[in-house]
Design a protein around this nucleic acid. Structure first.
Lengths: 219, 219
DNA sequence: TAGATTGTTAATCGATTAACAATC
DNA sequence: TAGATTGTTAATCGATTAACAATC
């Protein structure tokens, strides 16, 4: 059944970086780029870039490099970004509202189409142009909207419970803003956005006792 | 000069997860935990937890496990969280404002003490209880406040330029919300918060063509 | 003491990189 | 063609895990 070799997760997580870099390079007028040049731009080795891409096909030309428009097209196809994804936001507090209003999703093909809360004070209100639904109706609303991706912005205490219900309702990918590590079953993806955790690993290196390896960037 | 062995970055990035888990376990009344139990809770192997901790000392007791209060204390010390860190926010647009007002930083020891923008419409305004300073005065204000950590929430187009100036002014750790991969010199840490990139790597697995390894969680 | 669990070593596993034949 | 750069293999590097003596 599988034809492609198994792709390491770490490779998949680099592809959006390549996409972003290539979009930028296209904007500044480049049409072709070598793995060497792209590596310099992204602070990665040329070998890594060639190997990563080789999991998915042969996109380059020897002696020349990669066509930027073509590689963009290929990466978008590989990542499933050649379509628009409808997204639900769960939790319409301060954070949820700012996620709904964040202008960075739409141009990348992620459209927030529905919002949910379980607080009756909030249900029925408008938030960023969306009517806030009762979370109890998640499944039917999400089904009607074709939602497979949810963004969770609820308090830590209820995050696992909310996520369980999302999974139960058929959500396949979750972007979790709740400061809590949560568990999802096989077949469901989750990514946590947690600025505090990001800060906490940097302070390690600010400590004088940390003879830590210096200057390592993180994507 | 070095006494501790060099600690892999991937280990340092797991410590905040341990911290968060242990705080939770303490709240629900536990006082001691084995690497086995903590591993189940965090979906990690007991061997990994023991090895990670062993980079920093011997915190457990054979036959018994780890004292949760003691391990919390040790981890906070190791990560440099036994102090309050003053933080600057750069860029007071929609996103910057919601970062300034985010209530999750203060209880973890990160205090937003100053805010900057370069738009004269915004300079002098109040945002979340802070007066917005001119970014041109970053160095003197940041020095006066003892700021070593900055949170960047500026448009992608100016992110690299702003970050260069922060580095120049002596900032040692940057939490970057601009959707742009940026470069910092050795000795400066950077972590990117980019929800679009997180979504883009999950959509890969939502595609039918992705025979991808299913159910792999990400911290 | 007997049972449990640590801290650490050595083995395994997987990811990165150097090198180079193929080829544009 | 000559020069450049890919795609891929094999070597290296580093992280994870299994196993177990030490010991609470």
């Amino acid at each position: 059944m599988t034809t492609e070799p198994q792709v390491p997760g770490v490779v998949v997580e680099r592809l959006p970086q390549y996409l972003r870099a290539l979009s930028h390079l296209q904007e500044i007028g480049l049409e072709v780029i070598s793995s060497q040049q792209l590596g310099e731009f992204l602070q990665a080795t040329p070998a890594q870039i060639r190997k990563d891409l080789s999991y998915f096909g042969r996109f380059g030309k020897q002696g020349r490099g990669y066509s930027i428009p073509n590689l963009l097209l290929q990466l978008r196809r590989i990542l499933g970004l050649d379509q628009t994804w409808n997204v639900a936001v769960v939790g319409v507090g301060r954070l949820g509202r700012s996620i709904i209003s964040y202008p960075g999703f739409e141009p990348e093909g992620f459209r927030v189409v529905c919002a949910f809360d379980s607080n009756s004070q909030v249900i029925g209100q408008m938030a960023g142009g969306l009517l806030v639904n009762d979370f109890a109706n998640f499944r039917e609303v999400a089904d009607a909207e074709g939602v497979k991706i949810a963004i969770v912005a609820v308090p830590a205490g209820v995050a696992q419970d909310v996520i369980d219900q999302l999974v139960e309702a058929g959500v396949k990918a979750i972007l979790n803003y709740a400061p809590k590590s949560t568990i999802v079953p096989n077949g469901v993806r989750i990514q946590n956005v947690d600025p505090v955790v990001s800060l906490q690993s940097m302070t390690y290196y600010l400590n004088p006792h940390a003879n830590g390896e210096v200057g390592e960037a993180e994507a």
